[in-house]
Design a protein around this nucleic acid. Structure first.
Length: 600
RNA sequence: GCACCCGUAGCUCAACUGGAUAGAGUGCAGGCCUCCGAAGCCUGAGGUUGUGGGUUCGACUCCCGCCGGGUGCACCA
């Protein structure tokens, strides 16, 4: 049994015995003892001093005495002010370690086929331009959260909703039709455009340029800015194209299929290097009409209102929000309509779904607030199972990325730069022992991506983060490569030992040192860390944990001889502890989507 | 203007959800490779947690007011 549970139960009894206090064990929490005090777990006794009618320190001692008297797992304790520091017996830690050392998946909960099922929607790209830095954060977050939830025992469906239609998609199509001259990813002389998403992105930019030329010309002719932007010939043309698309015009549809195909191929390649994947891909072209039926139902229930201009709206002012349009006067649907539709679709498709997580930037906080509220008003009881995992923007030192100013950090470029940096760093450090160039490249990829992913995931998703392209991402200190390095050092030791061949036996004929105990405690806490990361939808929790583990191992490595340890039992214990640490590092990193190399 | 979010070492981030003397990394100053891998380890300086109040045994954390920054306020997605 977990030591916290043992303590809580006994404490619950103790509080009653001592002070006639009736507190259920779940309400009694112990926290980790701060480094500067002696002890493993700490109880804050302030809440009990009213009942004990004694000074905090005295109360702490009294409780400590009770716990030590009733639990052999408590070896000693001390009280500082209102804090009761409990020292857990080394026997408990060693027994725990013995119990899990050979159990590879000790930290995960097996997925229960009838248990919680959660869908994580992430990535959801537009098919008119390549992925950038912001998408990278989204992708890494979505993937990692999904993996963490899986490890926490949930059934997980990774989903993405591709924004494959609409006026913005038509823009690049029209530009290509006008000026493309048959350029394709295969025949292009522009090397960057061999990747289809970049090719399509180029035409999206061309459209925008022409649009600006035309609208400023109209502006000079004395037209208002608003009108100029509405009347530019190219805008009228693209609107016509969208109309044709919706009618199913074969020529437009063919072009659409062709160009989207290029984009998908490009995305696939980026996804592959990023290591993210999806169980289910939805296309907006197939879902954009969903939702109208729901609007009708809502009208019948008087949740929505049909206005004089024939638009359908919902008044949310009573909830502190605004009036929201759900159907235009001409009966066409809007973004919200569609999102209502897809949500309903997903829950009816899989009735066992009990969580739907949208990984979407914080710019859309309001949208999701409204969406969830409408679903609730429509009477869907699963509305409260919807969750917007809102993450902060990735900012540059100058502020937000702006395509107009050309400050958008392209995903593919960034990945390439990170791999280049890893290569340079490796060569600079003189780590050139890799004869096989393919193996070396594989290593640079692992390091470069490891640095990038760790950098983006260690930050709390809710917070915006800063990325400085000029100072490339660090490879030292609190970074991915730091953790990868700790891992490779362990692997190196294990290769030199006999552990690779199997289990080495040890008996606890020694008293573990503090550094050994710290490692066991971290290994012990890992399952709880996974749960917490899942509950708070925060991969940063895993990142912080694995960093601490690597750091703690480095301390241990620094002053505890392992292979040179003369006592065989202790040597084997240290090897086993090292092996377990490596395993936990590797698994933690996997939850972050980061690979660990065998050597670096 | 209204709504929401955010201000923590020079810089980038933590702080177990209200607990002890607010921790790491980086940068800076110094030290450690004849010893399991120095992408590592150790020491030092660096803070009135934007600011003023309030709540209480206790506040980076909760409440109110200011100051500064961001995002949203489409019949776009």
């Amino acid at each position: 049994m977990l030591i916290e549970e043992l303590l809580s139960q006994e404490l619950s009894k103790g509080l009653f015995a001592l002070y006639k206090l009736d507190v259920p064990p779940v309400q009694l929490v112990f926290q980790k003892t701060k480094k500067e005090f002696e002890g493993d777990l700490t109880l804050v006794v302030f809440p009990f001093v009213k009942a004990s009618r004694k000074a905090p320190e005295e109360t702490a001692l009294e409780i400590g005495t009770y716990l030590a008297g009733h639990l052999t797992e408590v070896s000693t304790f001390n009280a500082v002010k209102g804090f009761l520091n409990i020292v857990v017996s080394t026997d408990y830690w060693l027994t725990y370690f013995k119990g899990v050392e050979k159990q590879k998946d000790y930290a995960i909960r097996p997925v229960n086929e009838t248990g919680d099922k959660v869908m994580v929607e992430y990535s959801s790209p537009n098919t008119n331009k390549p992925l950038h830095l912001g998408h990278i954060r989204n992708n890494l977050l979505g993937f990692s959260i999904a993996e963490i939830l899986k490890a926490g025992g949930k059934q997980v469906v990774k989903a993405t909703l591709v924004n494959d239609r609409g006026i913005h998609i038509c823009k690049s199509m029209l530009a290509w039709k006008k000026w493309g001259a048959g350029e394709t990813p295969d025949n292009t002389s522009d090397t960057a455009c061999r990747k289809g998403d970049h090719l399509v992105g180029k035409y999206y930019v061309l459209f925008d340029k022409e649009f600006k030329v035309q609208s400023s010309k109209l502006l000079e002719q004395g037209m208002s800015k608003e009108d100029a932007e509405k009347k530019a010939p190219i805008i009228l043309e693209v609107q016509e194209m969208l109309r044709k698309w919706e009618e199913g015009d074969p020529e437009v549809r063919t072009l659409w299929t062709l160009m989207n195909g290029w984009v998908y191929k490009g995305f696939e390649s980026t996804y592959r290097t990023l290591g993210v994947d999806f169980d289910k891909t939805y296309y907006e072209s197939e879902t954009y009409l969903l939702g109208k039926k729901i609007i009708e139902q809502g009208l019948r229930k008087y949740v929505f209102e049909k206005k004089a201009d024939h638009s359908v709206r919902i008044d949310l002012t009573a909830d502190g929000l605004d009036e929201k349009v759900l159907l235009r006067p001409d009966g066409t649907s809007v973004y919200m309509t569609q999102d209502l539709g897809t949500a309903v679709q997903r829950f009816s498709e899989s009735p066992d779904l009990n969580r739907l997580i949208y990984v979407v930037g914080s710019e859309q906080d309001y949208h999701f607030k409204v969406l969830f509220l409408i679903l609730k008003k429509l009477g869907y009881k699963w509305a409260e199972d919807c969750f917007h995992l809102s993450y902060g923007m990735v900012e540059l030192p100058e502020g937000r990325m702006k395509s107009r100013e050309g400050t958008v950090v392209d995903a593919d470029d960034l990945i390439k730069e990170m791999i280049d940096t890893a290569r340079e760093m490796t060569l600079e450090l003189g780590k050139t022992e890799f004869s096989d160039p393919a193996e070396a490249e594989e290593l640079y990829r692992k390091i470069g991506l490891g640095a990038l992913k760790y950098f983006m995931l260690k930050v709390d998703p809710k917070k915006k983060m800063l990325f400085n392209p000029k100072e490339s991402i660090d490879l030292q200190g609190n970074t991915g490569p730091f953790i990868q390095y700790a891992y490779t050092r362990i692997r190196s030791i294990l290769r030199k030992s006999e552990l690779a061949d199997g289990y080495l036996s040890w008996t606890a004929d020694f008293i573990p040192e503090q550094k050994e105990k710290e490692l066991i405690k971290l290994i012990y806490s890992f399952p709880a860390v996974i749960q917490e990361a899942g509950n708070s939808f925060n991969p940063g929790t895993i990142a912080n944990f694995v960093y601490e583990l690597a750091r703690e191992y480095n301390h241990f490595y620094q002053d505890c001889p392992i292979l040179k340890q003369e006592s065989v039992s202790r040597r084997n214990f240290r090897l086993s502890l090292s092996a377990k640490t490596a395993e936990v590092i590797s698994f933690s990193m996997k939850l972050l989507g980061i690979e660990v190399p065998e050597r670096m």
